[in-house]
Every structure is written in structure tokens, then in C-alpha cells.
Design a binder for these strands. Structure first.
Lengths: 245, 245
DNA sequence: CGTTAGCTTGAAATCTGTCAATGATTGTGG
DNA sequence: CCACAATCATTGACAGATTTCAAGCTAACG
């Protein structure tokens, strides 16, 4: 089935859209979303290229685009995974671990923070909230595995098509994509660091997609003109992005 | 610091070696390991190429080598992550999720199983056990990210060197590697499916390592002759494999 | 002893990276 | 408002790594 036909976003949700992904696990009741909303949230604005410290808080991305990145010995930076609005920036709160990667904003963004102790107390009262966090973690793991597939076994064109299909799906889920249009606010070099392609080749790959009439770009705005064909090229199927229990 | 100098396995451990990785999180007390050992474990023997069903049990690999694999649309199979003895085969028990990948034995192996309900009850009594499971999950995520780095940003030679360094470390941790020697019981095609290399190139890469005097193979037995140089080539540092809290 | 899976080798094709130069766009300070 | 700098996008030529194809070889195993 094509992603454009998939509508996993039907159930009306209580509370702010920032909890949408947690809500979509199907594990939370209304009062649990309310309990989440009742935490001492603070808002933080992060400039482009800024980093996000998630050691003391549970951080949800509210707007903008963030990557988990790792800098290799030789100084080359590698974008490991992508965080879009509604996503949890860091799961250290459930795993008890700091990760080796750091959070880096590629656009100006805003982060909602809740103190870690509060969240832990909340999880003790509401085990479903912990379960929902873990369900999100599981999805994010699947996303990383899909990227592994992409980088290991898809050509540049397939990889780029897959990236665009996934991004459209994830942004649409939080109402940031409409009619297969969304803002692609990152440089081609950033895309390359994420997809393991050189910036030059990212450029050529996007041109090829344009040449085939599959995408159109106007500034940072991108339009997927033929999602079915993009998904076919990419071998994209959105199952890994949803809570398929 | 070189991996050969790292000795994270010092604390004497109570109970079977199969719980070693959980014990090494530092989160468990002796009585908690005893409680784990007290579950209704059953042993399952799996032939080479057999698959492992982890839907109803917590599965720990006891011997042999297993991969989490995914079969792409075109039928090509892709090995996503490696499971060695002592590892948890599947984290569905904590995430509540089935994964898209399946567990496939590449050698004959034995699996220890504990019924999921028992484990869940145990985690409710002993939150530290849940924490230890989550800590292992976190490490396994880091391992997948390291593979992502390897496949995206390391050459075939670096990738293979990294693979061998990691494998040596993980097998030594459970006393299955000694003096940089261990059994590499998988075909070159399997290595290729894991490292995103063609079987032919796996072969040439291993030859190059042999030519440089870095490894020696006798049948399935492999000997890392110059770990320091292998680690240098690979950019290997075992931090991601340990519970660096 | 034949069969089969796995290993090895060579040659050619292909994809992607690197280098280097040129445009385009954006933001900034005068 | 303009000149300027800086970042980003684009283009071409070339090099290199890796894949694919095809063929032998080896070793294990019934």
C-alpha cells in the first residue's frame, strides 16, 4: 500500500500536538496525556548550528530540525539520525545512558523540556507513559535500521527517494507537510552527511529526481510530484514508522 | 587507549555466564541475578540457518552466532545486527514491539528462554532488572549506530578491521576469544551481507589484511596478529560497547 | 567418489568521490 | 541601497573503490 493512502492519524488527540507521537502509540489514556502536559515544561530556543543539552531533561522537539550527530576521529561529522517536531530528542531518560552522539540543530528550533526527575516520578505513577516512551524508542530504532538498509543497499537515487518519502511521512504526521509539500531546511551537505553521500552527489541526485519529474523545489520548499514512483524507486513502505504491534 | 588494555570484566560475577552482560551494567545486586536465574529457563537448540521465535520469551543466546536480518523486496537478505553469546536476542519484551527483522542463526546455536510473563513480573518486583535490560538495549543501539558509521564512512578495509576488532572484544567479554583468537563461523557472503560488501570484495579485503600481516586464518579460526594496527585502521575504540554511564 | 557450497582470481563496468572552478543567494555593514 | 563576504548550489573532468560477471579451485560431506 502506498503511504499516501495510509492514514494512521485518525484518532482525535487530547492535549498539545507535541504529544502526538506518544499518543499514537495507542498506549495512553486522556488523563495520562493530561498528566504529561502538567509537567513543568520550559521552552528553549536554539539557533541554527546550536547544540541541545538533554542530560537533565526530557526534550521534545517543537519546531525546526535536529540531528543526532557524531564527530569521527578525523573531525568529519556524521549525522546519525533525524529528529523532527514531535520527536523525542534523546532517550537517555529511559535507558539511563548517555549516548556518544550529540544533538545538533540544522535550523533554528524550539525545544520543550521537562525535568528528568519529574518525568521519572510520572512514569512510576503511570507505567503507560513509560511504555509509550519505549514504543517511540522502538520506532526510532527501526528508523535507524532503515537508514542502515538505505546506506548499505540502496543507490544514491534510491537513498534520496527514500529519505524524501520518509521525511514527507513524518512531517505529515505532525501536520508540517501538506499535499506532498514541505520545507527541506537543510543544506545539501547536511543531507550528504546523513545519507553518506558527498555534497556534489547529493546535488546530482536531486537533479536527476527533478529531471525525471519526481520532485520540484522552490527555495527550501520541496514538492513530491509523484510519490508513488518515488516510493517504488526507494522501496519505501511506512510500516517501520508506525507502532505496528 | 587500546582495546587490548581495556579490562571491563573484572568484577566477579554471581550466577551463570549468560547473565554476564546484564551483570556488567553494574545495576544488579547478587540477589537480582539469583532471581533472574530462578526463572523457568528452557534450552533450545537451533540448527544453522534456523530462525528463532522470540515472541513469547525473553531469549538469551547461549552459544553460536545469530543475526537480526531483514529481507528486502527484491529478496536480498540483509544482516542488520549481530548477536553473540550472552546477548539478548530481542528487546520486544521491554519495548512491547515486534521488530521487522527476524532472528537467523548462521551457525548451530543454543538459546535460553524465559517466559515473557515471568520476566515482566520479575521486572515489576526488581526495577533494576528492567534498568539492566534497558542499559543493554542502549548499548545495542550504539552498536547499530557504529555499524552505520562503518558502512557509511569507512572503506572496505576499515570496515572489516572494525568488524574484527568489535567481534574480538565482544567474544572476549564472554570468554570466547583468547589471545586475540576466536572462531569466525560465518561465510564470507554472510560477512558481506552484514558489512554491505559483495562476497568477492570481502574475500579480497581479508586477503589484504592477511597480506599486511594483520590477521591469520586457519579454517574458521582467526587470529588478530596486530590488534593495535587493526584498531588504528578501523578507528576502533570500544567505548560504545560498554556501559559508559 | 561425486556433488555442493564456499573460496579465489581476473577483467570489465559502474557508481561515487574528489578537485577545481563558476554561479547564485543571503546577510551585513557602510 | 549598494558593495562585499560568505555560504551554498552547480558543473565538468578525472580518479578510485567496489560491484558484477565468469570461471576455476578447494574442501567438506553424503
Amino acid at each position: 500500500m502506498l503511504a499516501s493512502n495510509v492514514k494512521p492519524f485518525e484518532t482525535p488527540m487530547p492535549g498539545p500536538v507535541i504529544f502526538k507521537r506518544l499518543w499514537e502509540t495507542g498506549l495512553l489514556k486522556n488523563n495520562e496525556v493530561a498528566a504529561l502536559a502538567g509537567l513543568s515544561w520550559t521552552r528553549q530556543n536554539v539557533p541554527a548550528d546550536g547544540s541541545i543539552d538533554s542530560r537533565r531533561d526530557l526534550c521534545l522537539l517543537s519546531s525546526g530540525m535536529v540531528f543526532r550527530q557524531r564527530t569521527m576521529e578525523d573531525g568529519v561529522r556524521r549525522l546519525m539520525s533525524m529528529v523532527v517536531p514531535g520527536d523525542i530528542c534523546c532517550y537517555a531518560i529511559v535507558t539511563g545512558h548517555m549516548t556518544l552522539s550529540t544533538l545538533c540543530a540544522v535550523t533554528p528550533c524550539t525545544v520543550m523540556r521537562a525535568p528528568m526527575e519529574e518525568v521519572i516520578t510520572l512514569c512510576e505513577h503511570y507505567p503507560n507513559i513509560l511504555a509509550a516512551l519505549l514504543a517511540n524508542l522502538s520506532i526510532d530504532t527501526a528508523v535507524t535500521e532503515e537508514l542502515l538498509l538505505s546506506i548499505g543497499h540502496r543507490t544514491a537515487l534510491e537513498r534520496m527517494a527514500h529519505f524524501l518519502c520518509e521525511l514527507e511521512f513524518r512531517l505529515r504526521r505532525v501536520r508540517l507537510a501538506d499535499h506532498a509539500q514541505f520545507l527541506l531546511n537543510m543544506t545539501q551537505a547536511d543531507m550528504g552527511a546523513y545519507l553518506a553521500l558527498s555534497a556534489v552527489h547529493v546535488n546530482r541526485t536531486l537533479q536527476e529526481l527533478r529531471r525525471r519529474g519526481l520532485v520540484r523545489t522552490v527555495g527550501a520548499r520541496i514538492n513530491l510530484l509523484d510519490q508513488a514512483e518515488l516510493q517504488r524507486i526507494a522501496g519505501f513502505s511506512p510500516a517501520y514508522l508506525t507502532d505496528a504491534r
